[in-house]
Amino acid sequence: MTLENVLLVSSVLFAIGLYGALAKSNAIMILMSIEIMFNAVNIAAIAFSRFTVPAGLTDTPITVTQQAVQRALTGQMLSVFVITAAAAEVALGLALVIVVYRQRGTVDVTDLTEMSG
């Protein structure tokens, strides 16, 4: 389990999610693909957190422990917030899908083209 291998997994997952987001016509399917992409990003962040330490320490005299903790767990913190935001986003996204379904009777995004340029 090296950093590169984990990043490999993350990249593959991201690519799969991207494909799904671009190539599917069902709105809910697109949302699911986006969730896959979020997961891929989280994996990458946590991998970096596990295998590296971010640079740029401050000069304020805090203990090594605190600094180390702060620096070393930054990736995981990012993931927490990503998960939170993803949850909020999927909730709202699905709400929108349902509203659209109520109004148009379809969730096929190819039928929803009013923003054409």
Binding site: A21, L22, I30, T113, E114, S116, G117
Partner: peptide, 14 residues
């Protein structure tokens, strides 16, 4: 390219 489909835009952006 400008067909009003968000996915097209996304594909082009990617």
């Amino acid at each position: 390219i400008q067909d009003g489909q968000l996915q097209t835009y996304g594909a082009v952006a990617s």
